[in-house]
Design a protein around this nucleic acid. Sequence first.
DNA 1: CGTCTCCTTGAATTAGATCAATATGTGTGG
DNA 2: CCACACATATTGATCTAATTCAAGGAGACG
Lengths: 230, 230
Amino acid sequence: MSVSTAVAAKPSQTTSQMPWMTSAFCDDSLSGDLGPTGSVLHFPPDRAIYEEGDPARSFYKVVSGVVRTCRFLSDGRRQIDSFHVEGDVFGFDIGGEYRLSAEAVSECTVIAYRRRGLDAAAAVDDRLARQFFTHAMTCLARAQEHSLLLGRGTAVQKITTFLMEMAERGACDQVIDLPMSRQDIADYLGLTIETVSRTLSHLERDGVIGLPTARRVVLKDRRVLRGMMA
Amino acid sequence: MSVSTAVAAKPSQTTSQMPWMTSAFCDDSLSGDLGPTGSVLHFPPDRAIYEEGDPARSFYKVVSGVVRTCRFLSDGRRQIDSFHVEGDVFGFDIGGEYRLSAEAVSECTVIAYRRRGLDAAAAVDDRLARQFFTHAMTCLARAQEHSLLLGRGTAVQKITTFLMEMAERGACDQVIDLPMSRQDIADYLGLTIETVSRTLSHLERDGVIGLPTARRVVLKDRRVLRGMMA
DNA sequence: CGTCTCCTTGAATTAGATCAATATGTGTGG
DNA sequence: CCACACATATTGATCTAATTCAAGGAGACG
């Protein structure tokens, strides 16, 4: 199995630590299966990659930076479905159009793979179809986990769970450098920006975390933190 | 394509009205693909069909009645992921064990299909693999929709959206006979039983719905109701 | 050094939860 | 048919977690 340098997964990130990075997408086999390597695109922070309702002509893999996928309520309020980091695939909708919007959280680079129809691609390669299936099931598992948190979690449970999620993705176990704003976190957890800020301050006062800067979180007591999750 | 009488979809339910009943599972092709028709099982209300963590040896199709799939928080609180009605497939987890519990909401009959490993079955039949994929993507779309509601919806938005969902499933457009209790609705929407009851009463006082009995809802003004959704 | 954006903190408000009581069935046995 | 127990649902009275409203801080950047 060849791995191109451009889209290789970070070696430090193991599959076991990152359940959303399943075998299907840890290599660049899709680029081989779907034709030549897709086009490399670059986006500045907050730039839309695609919007809900757009014709779904491509799907994407994050090379660097972070992408958010989200939906909007009629009153303009936002629900972030998930954050996508290096190696993650997004925009993988069936049907003619995207059901969520995708936006760059930070400066980021992605590869766009044209999909003339995933059905057609999957039809000629059943191994590919199985990879798609595995990917979909993994996303589903995460979405169900998220629903439990949104429906029944308190602010503290939401924040601690979020921090532990982010810690699993990061290079270091202790220090998390958050790529997203408080507003992003709020919209991911179904909270307000003030509640996010207050809850983080509260956890810091309790000595469970440290906040050297707004975007940097130090997990001081993972055991206590885990006990607060759910 | 043959359709057995035992598991045929209700003719009145169209695919467009029921996006979770996609082509993949509206017929009994799975039974043919996975061996003889699975065993027919019967469950009384509130009986567990399987529990979170059990080895996932089968998946199921609802023949009659309603099934709920749910998870529990450590404090015992419950989040219902979805309700499954006639024709719906559930228990379709990859990995060794179920990630959610399944319980009978009402008296219900299901067919259990043994799965020695869906991967293996899908490997020998790519059409089957594509059906699995489509099913997974449909579940995912619904889960994401539900997240938006749980994360950002008010009690009124949650209840009205729920009622419209149920109306789409039912035989009649105007009258809904709810198969589930107030507690089930509360756990599906991330509310308490009291808030569910109060919100329904409130909608009745406003003349938007009628409540001839606790379990029967009459949609009096679908236009207003739709405007309240989100 | 000012301006801008993002973040934090405080005070007041409120939507929904919790606590507590009453009502509405619903089935059972007399 | 009624009386009773038991489930489930409604309604009312409080309470509280989180939101909203309103100031300030803290960096970043020209």
